[in-house]
Amino acid sequence: MKILDTNTNFGFYPYRKVDTSLDTLKDILKSYQAKALSLSLKGIFYDAIEGNEETLSLLKGEKDLYPVATYDPRAYPKGIEYLEGLRAKGFLAIAFFPRLQGWIIDFAPFREVLDVLKRENLPIIIHTSGYGELTKISSLAKEMENPFIIAGFHYSNLSEAIAIMKRLKNIYIESHLLNSPDALEYIKRYVDIDRVIFGSGTPLLSFETALDVILKSTLSEDEKEKVLSKNFEGILGVEL
């Protein structure tokens, strides 16, 4: 079964000593024959544009790793022009990290960023959590056609994800924090399993944990395959 991880990264992790190198990421993915979307941590912690260039540079020639761009709205308008034509540069998606970077969805520079991104139908991945965050995202997403993939939902705020996904077709949930025992079955029952996208957060987080949650669930093999790769490929419209 093909595995396509939409949430990986590589580089230096400043908050504790841990191996998050590209080589380690590649070793983990190789052991599961998995493909992945990835980006340099430099773009999250230091400078988005420098990080994006590093992502493109280091992933060039990697057949199983696909670049993801990022942007830090705290730097707006610096570098905003970089977000024009991301697909042509080689990125498959763009990811935002408000929780790590300390900004909120109701942040005017983020609206400016989305205005640029709506010009091409690139998937927008947002790593956030906290009650009300997805509700705020939904008010932005309903004015756009881009798919929004939200990473950061676990037992305490799954209710918000379900409520929003029922209303908006372009909202998807990334799986790495879906940690309540029946989270997948619950989404299947109240929304649709087509709206779950596999992600792990590796190499900082456990790839096996994210995978086990899918494989050890009661979903059918077809449904597991959808979560693990086909749902995201459907969003992109291409097979990776």
Partner: peptide
């Protein structure tokens, strides 16, 4: 933390 958290979540932490 079952029934709050999926045991598979922690099994993965051991297995990795």
């Amino acid at each position: 933390d079952f029934t709050l958290i999926n045991p598979a979540f922690v099994i993965g932490m051991v297995e990795c």
